[in-house]
C-alpha cells in the first residue's frame, strides 16, 4: 500500500488536492446558498448563519483541512458579499474555530447530539459577538435582538441538515484511501 502511495500519478495527486479543499469548497457553497433569495415571506430576515455551521462542523471533524487562515478568508468573503462591516464575520468565525480547537478533547468522538448541544452555546456566543460588533461599527442603534434570536434559532435548526450533508461528503469523498 505504502509503495503505491509513494508513487502517485498526477491524477491521484490532483484528486488528493481536490479532496483537501473539499471542506473549504463546501463552506463557500453554503455561503453562496445563503445569499440566494428564496422569495419566501419573512425568511430573508432570519436567514441562518450557514458559514458558522460549516466552520463549526469542519473545526470538529477536519481541523486539518480548514485552518484559521481559511476561516479568516471565508469571513472576509462573507462580509464583502453580504455588505456587513468588514472584519466582523472573520472575527466571529475565528473565535468559533478557536473555541472548538481548544476543546478538541471534549469534541473527540462524541455522538451527534452532543456536538449539536454544544453548538447551542457556541452559536449563541457567535450571534452575541456579531451583534455587539455590528452595533459598535454602525455607531448608531443596535439591531433589535428579537430578529437575531429568530435567526439564531433557525441556525440551530439547520445544523443537523448541514451536518448530515457534510458528513455524507466526508465519508464519501474524504475517506482516506
Amino acid at each position: 500500500m505504502t509503495g503505491i502511495a509513494q508513487r502517485r500519478t498526477p491524477w491521484q495527486k490532483f484528486e488528493a488536492r481536490a479532496r483537501n479543499i473539499l471542506p473549504f469548497g463546501l463552506t463557500v457553497v453554503v455561503l453562496l446558498f445563503g445569499l440566494t433569495p428564496t422569495y419566501i415571506p419573512g425568511l430573508a430576515q432570519i436567514t441562518p448563519m450557514y458559514t458558522l455551521v460549516a466552520i463549526y462542523f469542519w473545526a470538529i471533524y477536519r481541523p486539518d483541512l480548514l485552518s484559521y487562515g481559511l476561516g479568516f478568508f471565508i469571513g472576509v468573503l462573507e462580509d464583502l458579499l453580504t455588505g456587513a462591516p468588514l472584519g466582523v464575520g472573520s472575527l466571529t468565525l475565528l473565535l468559533t474555530q478557536w473555541v472548538v480547537f481548544n476543546q478538541q478533547k471534549f469534541f473527540h468522538a462524541k455522538p451527534f447530539a452532543i456536538t449539536w448541544f454544544a453548538f447551542v452555546f457556541v452559536a449563541f456566543g457567535a450571534v452575541l459577538l456579531k451583534w455587539i460588533c455590528i452595533g459598535l461599527v454602525a455607531e448608531s442603534s443596535f439591531t433589535p435582538f428579537g430578529d437575531l434570536f429568530a435567526a439564531y434559532l433557525i441556525t440551530l435548526a439547520v445544523y443537523p441538515v448541514i451536518a448530515w450533508l457534510f458528513s455524507k461528503a466526508q465519508t464519501g469523498l474524504l475517506a482516506e484511501p
Binding site: L35, T36, A44, T47, T82, G83, A84, V88, I134, L148
Partner: peptide, 12 residues
Amino acid sequence: VVADSGGAFAQS
C-alpha cells in the same frame, strides 16, 4: 435581484 445579504445582520 440575485442575492439578498441574508439574515438580520445586514440588509442589502
